[in-house]
Amino acid sequence: MSVLIFVETQEGKLKKSAREAASYGAKLAGKLGTDAVAVAVGKIDHSELATLGQQGVSKVLHEENAKLDHFDSRAFTKVVAAAADKAGATILILSSTFNGKALAPRLSVRLKAGVVTNATELANTEGTFTVKKAVFSGKGVANFTFATDKKIITVNANSFPIAKGEGSAAVEDFSAGLADSDFGVKVLHVEKAGEGIPLPEAELVVSAGRGLKGPENWGMIEEMANLLHAATACSRAVSDVDWRPHHEHVGQTGLTISPNLYIAVGISGAIQHLAGVSSSKTIVVINVDPEAPFFKAADYGIVGDAFAVVPKLNEALKKYYANN
């Protein structure tokens, strides 16, 4: 028995979400009195993988196959399933990243293991084994149980703190014996969306809506995001008219995020927007209209004109960072 964690890498480094998943898996393994084993694919140094020991992982299985530098749900499924077999894993942990969520359901079928995506807390192991997640776009919380012996959980970004212990994991080369027929897609090219911090994993997010009047006014929002080292997001209304790119759109039909800080400027707080952001730890709302529904879902609010408030706030942030 063991807990197996699929750790994602990017340009030769472990992703932050991978360390969160590893911390989650190791904690769960500790509660169940078993070991945490990780599996990684593609090009990455063993020295980087060994640092997963700090998150409590004892061993890392590494399939270094250049073909796995691009994601292919079928080939990856074969590798992770083989690793689960080798490690005798009964629980699999993945990150709730786009690829993690493409992989988990395939693994579910392959391993006959129930899956709960988007877990927000460590699984409850006392009594019935349950996993908590937000449902109905944040309007409810469900505790899921499994009818299967094997279980798969994907962990939401920013839901579980990264453990920072001592120790180094043993790294072992491993091969699932992939054949060409295991690959279903051929990646032609990858386009980066720019230099900013990617939204799905961001700890701090600055978001704006139709209250900003036009795309030319986003400079002050980007400036705030730069000062805070935050990602930028927007309402659907804004991405619908192409003021901002689609991948920035959060809400019921866009991304669901749960950063530590979500600052909403000129966004009314429609229920479909709140659905994507209501699990943020701290919410700040800046809106001219004191009746804007968003204030009811906020921790801190400023009733005021964004064009006056945001530049002042940016100055205050500059001062703060100069002194801290």
């Binding site: 293991a113 129930g114 899956v115 709960v116 309007k139 919380v141 505790n143 149980t145 699990s279």
Partner: peptide, 13 residues
């Protein structure tokens, strides 16, 4: 494979 054991209301702010 899975069932809901119980629901909860989301945390109030």
């Amino acid at each position: 494979y899975t069932t809901v054991h119980h629901f909860e209301a989301p945390k109030e702010r």
